[in-house]
Design a protein around this nucleic acid. Structure first.
Lengths: 258, 258
DNA sequence: AGTCCCGTTGCGATAGCCGCAACCATAGCG
DNA sequence: CGCTATGGTTGCGGCTATCGCAACGGGACT
């Protein structure tokens, strides 16, 4: 029952409540497994099934989990849909999505909205390309910082000290032959991004896809939101990107975080 | 603390875990309030602030809540966005949204996907009309059963006994002059819906809007999903609806729940 | 420098939780 | 039809994790 916590900024260890932790573990287990039986959950959170029953029943009475009528299959309930939406609202995603639509119309390619989450970027919203062949990532997807346009543009919003710290601990795994894989090259790339106020990803994350990203925030201390437009490299080229960049920067000017 | 719910079977009262309940209360408070201070949450869940601190710290270490850098403003974290998405997946919403798109193209009007939640319908997905003037409800919105097309079509999927039970406890509040406000009229309306396999809402919920809805399920015991297309009454008329209904029924035939 | 206002911490008492083990309900099978 | 296996449900008593308390700390404002 130790709880050594490797948080980056904080080495503060306020005592954690194990019962709360179990609630979270149970819900996350159900979120991952779609459907599960009592014993599965009990094992996942490491308690006796009788206790798992009491936990799940409690959550059920609060609409956080559901039980099918055979009384053996648990799954997460619709209440959590509303909560997820509320979390999205908190990011002022609606504002970002409005901009994302304009961005999509500018490039013709799918636009993703991402936020930093740990040392990765989490996709929280999406506006699709109208074209049949398009690049789309599901909401909830997490991507690395070093091989995505949104990641690099986020890194560019960090003060130098923090940047060094983060880069230090990243695994610079090569996704494609062109992925940046050294700390020096990454920092250089980020410097360039800071200067021009947008980031480009030229087949560094996924072969055959090119992306351009900008960073925004809606209020001085609000969280960073990154917008990126991604398309197949055969029709969405480096040149295309450079052509639309002036209008892109104009579009997000009021909220630019760089 | 209501627990008089829609279960026809016996309502077992398994002992509830108060610590789990508090987790839920805290998260829901944050979901509702966008941002809150420690004491606010403490009061909301009825514990001493020291304990609220421990709870929130635990949840923070699990990415369920976030704390802004001033260390005084709590809000729900992005992890819950992913969980909400998982909850949506569980409903096979993607399948429903594919159908919803075809439905939208059929009517030209916005299509909403809803599920029953307690004695209301919860909007869980949406495909917008292309037209500038359109009717849209945010995901997460809850609407009454008696004054919406989705509500009526859901009621039509219930066996008679259960239908009576539910209708019994509904507040048949009049939203517009044409809202059905008596149990008898509602049951009759539902009978009609059962017979024709779709429901119509003719300005009964919101003045100036007309909707048509169908009920689906993707597997024998899966939850009911209701699809509705809603438009402004001046261009989306009763006649329009009757004209497209044959094609609509054909579209959802494989999944019809009625 | 003083004083609010809040978040944070250590501690002791005890409410609440947990595992146990027996009890049911259902489905499958000889 | 009865037997077994599987898996959910329940009452209970011991004990631990949790809670409130009260004192502390640190930032902001005057």
């Amino acid at each position: 029952m130790k709880s050594s916590n490797f948080s980056v900024e904080e080495i503060r260890a306020v005592a954690t409540l194990q019962s709360a932790e179990r609630v979270v573990q149970a819900i996350e287990y159900l979120a991952e497994h779609e459907t599960a039986r009592l014993d599965d959950v009990a094992q996942a959170i490491g308690v006796h099934k009788s206790n798992a029953l009491r936990l799940l029943s409690t959550l059920r009475s609060l609409d956080w989990v559901e039980l099918d009528h055979s009384r053996t299959q648990y799954s997460i309930g619709p209440r959590l849909i509303s909560i997820g939406q509320a979390a999205i609202e908190g990011l002022e995603l609606h504002k970002a999505l409005a901009l994302a639509e304009d961005f999509r119309d500018l490039t013709g390619e799918t636009v993703h909205v991402s936020v930093p989450h740990g040392d990765r970027m989490l996709v929280v919203g999406r506006v699709d390309s109208y074209q049949p062949l398009k690049v789309t990532c599901e909401v909830g997807t997490e991507d690395p910082l070093h091989s995505t346009a949104v990641g690099k543009v986020y890194l560019a919003t960090l003060p130098n000290g923090q940047l060094a710290e983060v880069v230090e601990r990243l695994d610079l795994l090569p996704n494609t032959p062109t992925t940046v894989t050294t700390a020096e090259a990454l920092v250089e790339e980020v410097e360039l991004t800071k200067k021009r106020r947008y980031a480009i990803n030229n087949e560094e994350g996924r072969p055959g896809t090119v992306a351009v990203a900008v960073a925004m925030r809606f209020a001085p201390m609000a969280p960073i939101l990154a917008l990126s437009s991604t398309g197949p490299s055969h029709r969405f080229t480096y040149d295309d990107v450079e052509r639309i960049v002036p209008r892109l920067l104009e579009l997000v000017e009021p909220y630019q975080a760089l």
